[in-house]
């Protein structure tokens, strides 16, 4: 079951990748990357169960926190054209 679920999530990741590559606007790309990130978090957790090593969960927890930071940084950049410091 874990194996099937993992494979389905990998396929879903490949599909979001299509949107990330096609765009057309940067927001679409960020949206796709964000979904892709959520899927990655769960994929890593699933992989931990698949290989019977639940310590992977730490990785997926750290990733869940970081995915958010990357998304927000990118959006801040789109909004203001820079990341805070005066140009």
């Amino acid at each position: 079951m874990f194996s099937l679920a993992t494979l389905l999530v990998v396929i879903a990741m490949a599909m979001t990748l299509i949107r990330a590559v096609r765009g057309p606007t940067p927001y679409d790309r960020i949206l796709a990357v964000n979904v892709h990130g959520t899927m990655t978090v769960l994929l890593i957790a699933l992989a931990g169960f698949l290989t019977d090593r639940p310590d992977f969960l730490d990785l997926s927890l750290a990733y869940a926190l970081l995915n958010f930071v990357g998304t927000l940084a990118a959006l801040k950049f789109f909004k203001h054209g820079h990341l805070g410091e005066e140009q």
Binding site: T40, I44, A47, D55
Partner: peptide, 23 residues
Amino acid sequence: AIAILTGVYSLIMAVVYTLLDAV
């Protein structure tokens, strides 16, 4: 777009490392 997609690249790479047991 390249900067964003590079993020995806390292994301997938992280999954590959995980599956190869290099946590």
